[in-house]
Design a protein around this nucleic acid. Structure first.
Lengths: 247, 247
DNA sequence: CGGAAATTTGAAATCGCTCAATGATAGTGG
DNA sequence: CCACTATCATTGAGCGATTTCAAATTTCCG
């Protein structure tokens, strides 16, 4: 059975082949990116959306003083750049963290989708809500918890998402982020990330070997993280279910 | 000219009267809330959306240890509860900060909107992206900046939103949040909020009298905040503009 | 193998938190 | 209208988490 990024489109609503084709049909180009290559920079005018086929892509915001906040790490099946649809110029930079493949979606094509493909539009809407859940969880994590808890929450969140893409993943995965970038993501310095991670290794919570991280005690990490595991709905019955079929 | 919450629906796309009627027609009930009254609690099963007619409503997340993060302060014209559409149980509590009026929207009616009213669906999509921009700005603020900058960014953001609802507002507005709640919103303690705010008063940045806050030096606050003012697009030309009309 | 990039560690400084007490304010019932 | 009370704001002192700065050490690539 083919495994691929298009599974993620079916996350909330099972789409028809026609709908999936319409989605793929929006693509105007496919970018092959190498590590650190910029898909679109903060401040660029907004003319496209992007869809991750494979690889990791970071969305980040730079500050006037040179600091940088990584907003989100995007994986295969994620739609990129949607928040900036509301702005004349992009609020975030999109940068490949690994070699990556990204489809380009012109805005015109995306706009037509609301008219032509209501179920696809609803799927995009729900996907955006899922992104909001992730952003909210991060606000909670950064706003209310300490370094150890933040790192636990981050590792678990990533682990959950990677399993969604490839269920074969067990407790170990490759993390193509430098500790500097983990810091930028969690609102702490690289130095403090390192100290905390080392402590987690000593406590037997995790194990690391290069960029390979192993979650050795997932229940303990979950307890620490203060953020519950998020189990999302499938096929919500309020969408595209004629009233007559309701009891 | 009538000023009301329904202006906000036209924020990105100018809707027809029929579309506005369809939106209002979704309402199944109107809640009159007093201060601190709960619209919907975290953990409740998700059966409705909410739309703020007037008053202030907070969305907040409680942690196992009793800490609380206020995610967002919602004002007239905001749609509430959308992120939890992806979840079986609500991730956030919705609580009135002032006496407030909130329309209840059953999910079934909301779902039908994607089929029947594509332009309304697109408007909802863009509204969600705007919410993402706000969440991202807060992540940047909490993750990368210190207390003084966070409070500056918060006051300016609120000021900008209040002006959108009522353009008559000048430099002064009423803030129905206790310092405890400002702390919960910005990821800091009430004590530290107080110290920082007092310092801002001494520096002539702001003035306060009860719950009345005055922004005395908006340029200085903007400089401090590290978050730029967000000017959102109107009527993006990629939406519902037939290709033939493009040059 | 060599050099650049990333990680790791130490020490000192800073910011924000906790605990605890005092002062101000507003709403309430007499 | 006033006293009463609860809530909210304010301030101080000490502590703890995290940052900053700087110097090794290790890892990764070419």
């Amino acid at each position: 059975m083919r495994r691929g990024p298009f599974h993620r489109l079916n996350e909330f609503i099972t789409l028809t082949q026609e709908e999936l084709n319409a989605f793929r049909g929006m693509t105007s180009a496919t970018l092959k990116l190498s590590r650190d290559e910029i898909v679109r920079a903060q401040g660029d005018s907004v003319t496209e959306l992007y869809f991750v086929i494979d690889g990791w892509v970071a969305a980040s915001v730079g500050l006037p003083d040179g600091k940088r906040q990584i907003i989100r790490v995007h994986l295969a099946g994620d739609l990129l750049g949607a928040p900036s649809l509301t702005l004349p110029r992009a609020m975030e930079s999109l940068v490949a963290l690994t070699p990556a493949t990204v489809d380009v979606i012109p805005l015109q094509a995306f706009g037509e989708l609301f008219n032509r493909m209501p179920r696809l539009a609803a799927a995009m809407f729900l996907t955006s809500q899922k992104e909001r859940v992730a952003l909210i969880d991060r606000i909670v994590s950064i706003g209310q918890t300490k370094a150890l808890q933040r790192i636990s929450a981050f590792l678990l969140h990533l682990h959950d998402r990677l399993k969604l893409i490839d269920p074969r993943i067990d407790k170990t995965f490759e993390l193509p982020l430098m500790q500097q970038q983990v810091g930028d993501l969690l609102g702490m310095t690289m130095v403090h990330v390192n100290r905390t991670v080392k402590a987690m290794e000593r406590n037997g919570l995790i194990h690391r070997k290069g960029r390979c991280w192993t979650l050795r005690d997932i229940p303990a990490l979950r307890e620490l993280s203060a953020i519950p595991e998020r189990n999302f709905v499938r096929e919500p019955e309020w969408l595209f279910t004629p009233r007559v079929e309701q009891r």
